[in-house]
């Protein structure tokens, strides 16, 4: 009860800060201290958002489709690679440095190459999202597989369990928490990845829309799309949390105690 109360107060505080921020912003821009073409006021941004709503939704749908497909492929690939790495130490030793290396390549550098190789359609976007989302999930799963109590593995062995059974009943469910932590990060990455790769070449998507409004100096629309992207990312993360609660009911029970 007390915790809940604290929760509400902390939420109240952050809401108040955001509100104050918006008020100051509106005052600065509305009073003409900062010229409107450089920084549109929040009200302008809101107006732009609603007037552009159908177009934003259309582009948003394209971005979301790419993000979803990319994330799905990323998760499947991550799962496959993590299981291989967990089962075969040689694969682990061989692949681990390469996987880390892929993370040091700046997204912005590799995206134009992907466009060159794969064209302006979905393929380069999905590839880029796979590259960015695959890492946190693979590492999460690997950590998860290894997080099990070695004594629990002994217990399973004493019960005569096979390697597969130990994986199925101990390692896999034990890795779910780590998996969802990785998925949460990756869900946010997937939207950013999609937008960046659209930015660098494409026909549809919020990234394409961004380039267009930037070229026409419509900063109010620019801000509108930025807010939309943030909102989608937050929504996706929330969705992952909901999915986690559904898949891991024992976590909720722990909190209730």
């Amino acid at each position: 009860m007390r915790k809940r109360l604290q929760n509400i107060t902390s939420k109240g505080i952050s809401a108040a800060v955001i509100f104050a921020f918006l008020v100051i912003w509106q005052a600065l821009s509305g009073a003409g201290i900062i010229p409107k073409f450089m920084l549109p006021s929040p009200i302008d941004v809101g107006r732009a958002f609603f007037s552009e709503f159908p177009l934003l939704m259309e582009h948003g749908k394209a971005t979301l489709t790419e993000a979803f497909l990319g994330l799905l492929c990323g998760v499947l690939l991550a799962f496959f690679v993590a299981v291989l790495m967990d089962w075969f130490p040689y694969v682990y030793q061989g692949l681990y440095p390469i996987i880390v290396l892929t993370q040091t390549i700046p997204t912005i550098a590799i995206a134009p190459l992907l466009v060159l190789w794969m064209g302006y359609e979905m393929a380069p976007k999905i590839t880029l999202i796979v590259i960015t989302t695959f890492f946190p999930i693979t590492i999460g799963l690997l950590d998860g597989f290894r997080s099990g109590d070695p004594d629990a593995a002994d217990l399973f062995k004493a019960m005569g369990a096979s390697k597969w059974q130990i994986f199925r009943y101990m390692k896999l469910p034990g890795s779910l928490g780590h998996f969802f932590a990785g998925l949460r990060v990756s869900a946010a990455y997937s939207i950013v990845g999609a937008v960046i790769s659209e930015w660098l070449g494409g026909y549809y998507g919020l990234g394409v829309y961004m380039v267009r409004v930037k070229k026409s100096y419509s900063f109010d629309k620019m801000f509108a799309v930025i807010f939309l992207i943030s909102a989608i990312s937050l929504l996706l993360m929330r969705l992952v949390d909901l999915l986690k609660e559904l898949v891991m009911p024992w976590e909720r029970v722990k909190e209730e105690k």
Partner: peptide, 14 residues
């Protein structure tokens, strides 16, 4: 042979 290790080792997710 049944073996109960020092910890109860009940799986938290089951």
């Amino acid at each position: 042979i049944s073996y109960m290790l020092q910890k109860d080792l009940l799986l938290p997710y089951a």
